[in-house]
Amino acid sequence: MFGVWAPGEDVAKLTYYGLYALQHRGQESAGIATSDGKRLLVYKDMGLVSQVFDERSLASLTGHLAVGHCRYSTTGGSTWENAQPTLDGHDGSTVALAHNGNLINAADLRDLVAGHRVEGHRGEIARATPPTPRWSPPS
């Protein structure tokens, strides 16, 4: 996983090279999410970082903050749906999430979340993550 906050920088390219350095952590899929604070864009696909992105796709990822992920699947199959960052949320707010490791109580969490969701989403993170965590950063 890689994250960057850098107004004035090409955050998509920074994240691309960050993921490139982390390619050994996961070689099944790769993705980058960028935002300008108002809008969120996610581009992800199956493959190595260098196979997923090119100049055009990186140029379309604008903003001043970004997270990136290269995936090695350990919970959930190696599918496009499970590639990260995942995008989810509800009216008014959206979250792109890049996550590492396994939640060993994922089945319990999923059951917990299932009670709160309007309709079930497929995918490891979507189903194990409460709808848009409302978290205020410590100041």
Partner: peptide
């Protein structure tokens, strides 16, 4: 297994 009610 949790019957959808959560808590596991």
């Amino acid at each position: 297994g949790g019957g959808g009610r959560g808590g596991g």
